[in-house]
Amino acid sequence: MSALVVNVTTRQRVLGWLQPHRIVLIAIALAIVVCAAVFMRWDWIPNYAWLAVQGIWRTIWLLVVSVVLGFMLAVPLGLVQVTGPIWLAVPARTFCTIIRGTPLLLQLWLLYFGLGALFPQFPWIRESFLWPYLRQAWPYGVLALTLSYAGYEGEVMRGAFAGVPRGQLEAARAFGMSRWKILRRVWLPQATYRALPTLAGETVLQLKATPLVATITMVDIFSVSSRVRQETFIVYEPLLLLALVYMTITAILVFLFRKLEARIPARPG
């Protein structure tokens, strides 16, 4: 019985969504896609398919690593700005201001080319155990993207920590919880929950920032599409396909975050 009710509402919803003008619009969109598929050049795809898969993998890897590391950095950054001593709060705030006040592209180039230009002055760097990593491009890409995410998300976490009702923390203290335990059991979970909607937005923005690493010789999906453009002199098709790839990843991200939000009960604690 209840299944039937659900069915009816779903059907109504679909019908409500599929108004006549939408059907026309979808038909036009499909026609454009078909035209693009027929009249544009796609014969290069098989040659670059494997490279593209590797590029997509690299992009997603970079996104996940920098978001996870960046979030781990953002929590203390937000926390010390709300409750920390001044000698921690001021540097944290300065860090967030600098990251948010300058373009990521510039930060990336400063780290990669700027630091690189300093290497010849310090020959011992080449003997150090870090050298095999310093030689490659990806550590700089990961570092720049992580710091950037931490800067933006640190600001969000600051607001989230400050937004948790005082009463909650006082109640926890009345239970005799230690400061560490309050943070772990009450404060952090509630702040994270508050930050979750912006977290989704910030992560999509982070995805949109990843193609910048192509300028420091990292081979992500953006750089694969540039390579196709340069080797075949086909201009639009690789870019259109690239836009489609990013839209798909964005859609998946939004979907995953919605699932995550739905899993967490509306009234935590």
Partner: peptide
Amino acid sequence: TLVRAVPELVLILLLYYA
């Protein structure tokens, strides 16, 4: 939706040339 889902860099290249 399109503009907010596609990286600015890709949009700039697309719009700049196309």
